[in-house]
């Protein structure tokens, strides 16, 4: 194993709507023997709402600089945070003038471009590795899963770390822990969940999320797995609202990949926040043997 200590960027939803993703991420890394050091006093990455790239670069220069002082690469469980951290990292590395300008705004934005930014999925499969994880598995998670990747894992090209059309990193982890990938879900893996429109065009957002939930259900999935808190908010947090607004019954459990992996590593469900997902996850727990 090539990695034993990383800077951890939890992202804003870790304190509220995606607390179970935060809990399970910390628990899984601990079990895998990788120390996470939270980026001290981290600030918001800009999410999808700060549209001026220069502001995004400045916001993340501060986060990157804090981790750089500790000489640690950054890992985050959120796909949007990953996209913002990574594109900022790329822009700052390539542009000396930009670094100088930011340094002039405040000394805390003084980043030299020496660390890497990573998504948890990338770290699990490509840095820690499937063999290492396999050696620590305690249980079989005998679940049929619809692996949903969303937007920023396979695109845009310059920050992507998986295939844009058929990403596989989550599939590999699910198969490793004894789960089964449902057929007929592949074409939905990377279709946006509608999350960015939730507050301004909820009608469109609901239609989009419903499609994903429907396809997973029709494919016979026991649950959807994901790796982004905005997808979690749409597919899990809002699922009951979607059922009500569109007059449908779905009842599809939605879990973070870190929660599934945690179960396979023998971690207590409560420590993985499995009582915090909006759609009940008890059935899933019954499939862990």
């Amino acid at each position: 194993m090539s990695v034993n200590k990383l800077a951890y960027y939890p992202g804003c939803p870790s304190e509220a709507t995606a607390i179970e993703q935060h809990m399970s991420t910390e628990a899984v890394f601990e079990k895998l023997g990788v120390e996470l050091v939270e980026v001290e006093d981290w600030n918001c990455c800009g999410a999808a709402e700060v549209e001026d790239p220069r502001v995004v670069y400045a916001l993340n220069a501060r986060n990157l600089a804090i981790a750089e002082k500790e000489d640690l690469d950054i890992v985050t469980p959120c796909s949007i945070c990953y996209y913002n951290l990574e594109r900022s990292n790329k822009a700052l590395r390539a542009d000396e003038a930009l670094r100088t300008k930011l340094r002039g705004i405040d000394s805390s934005l003084d980043y030299n471009g020496t660390i890497k930014t990573k998504h948890v999925l990338d770290v699990f499969v490509n840095d820690i590795g499937l063999d290492e994880i396999s050696s620590k598995l305690e249980k079989k998670v005998n679940v049929k899963v619809a692996p949903y990747y969303g937007c920023y894992i396979g695109r845009p090209p310059e920050t992507a770390f998986d295939d844009p059309d058929n990403p596989v990193l989550m599939d590999k982890l699910i198969e490793l822990i004894g789960g089964e990938i449902v057929p007929n879900f592949n074409y939905m893996k990377t279709v946006c969940c509608g999350g960015p429109l939730m507050m301004t065009r909820g009608d469109i957002a609901f239609d989009m999320a419903r499609k994903i939930l429907d396809v997973a259900k029709n494919a016979g999935a026991d649950c959807i797995s994901l790796a982004c808190p905005l997808c979690g908010m749409m597919l899990d947090g809002k699922q009951a609202d979607i059922e009500k607004a569109l007059d449908v019954t779905i009842g599809m459990p939605v879990v973070y990949i870190t929660q599934l992996l945690g179960l396979a590593l023998g971690i207590e469900p409560k420590k993985l926040g499995l009582n915090k997902n909006a759609v009940d996850t008890k059935e899933i727990l019954g499939m862990v043997v």
Binding site: C151, Y152, G154, R155, P156, P164, V191, C192, P196
Partner: peptide, 9 residues
């Protein structure tokens, strides 16, 4: 959505 599907393709 700024979902980047178009950009990727």
């Amino acid at each position: 959505l700024i979902c980047q599907t178009c950009t990727a393709r």
